[in-house]
């Protein structure tokens, strides 16, 4: 998959910034998407295009457990989030939603907004076409990949139940 990068060179971007609590009386992706990243980058929703990636520093998605953060990003068209590291619940929520979250140490330093990336999940390689560079990441565990491939944890469970 290929897409353009929105790079936030910051650690500890939290779920309150990704989707502020004042919007938690909604839970549909299309509704939440309108406010995605509002408190960190009010322009984000105007810039983002279907299939784009977010890149950030360490501990992305820390704070509240709200899965609304994943839905808001996906609703806004984001295909994957790549960060130096992730906060635990956010990472779980990504897997459980079949949404790609890739841990790639140091990536936030090496990329910039607007870069075009190609991600090869099987090989664990990200190619930066703009900078003509490559970064490798640790393969996603089999169990998590099964969930992602099923389209999320509930599909996975429903599949097992049938």
């Amino acid at each position: 998959m290929t897409g353009k990068v929105h790079c936030y060179k910051r650690d500890h971007i939290n779920t309150d910034e990704i989707i502020p609590a004042r919007y938690l009386n909604m839970d549909k992706e299309t509704d939440l998407a309108r406010y995605a990243m509002e408190d960190i980058d009010p322009e984000f929703i105007k810039k983002v295009k279907e299939g784009d990636f977010i890149i950030a520093g360490e501990d992305f998605g820390c704070g509240s457990s709200r899965e609304h953060a994943v839905w808001a990003l996906r609703g806004a068209g984001i295909r994957a989030v790549i960060a130096d590291t992730f906060a635990r619940i956010f990472y779980r929520n990504c897997i459980n939603n079949g949404f790609l979250a890739i841990e790639c140490k140091g990536i936030s330093e090496k990329t910039d907004s607007g870069d075009e990336l190609e991600i090869d999940v099987e090989k664990g390689v990200i190619t930066n076409r703009t900078k003509d560079d490559q970064y490798s990441f640790q393969a996603i565990p089999d169990f998590a990949r099964d969930i992602i491939n099923a389209g999320g944890l509930l599909n996975y469970i429903a599949g097992k139940a049938n």
Partner: peptide, 28 residues
């Protein structure tokens, strides 16, 4: 489905916060 579920570990339980999908899976 709340990050501060860690609170209940104070009573010697394993207690952790999860998202809504986890919550749904555990309910099912």
């Amino acid at each position: 489905g709340d990050s501060h579920t860690s609170t209940h570990g104070a009573l010697g339980a394993f207690s952790t916060g999860v998202g809504s999908t986890d919550l749904a899976a555990a309910l099912a």
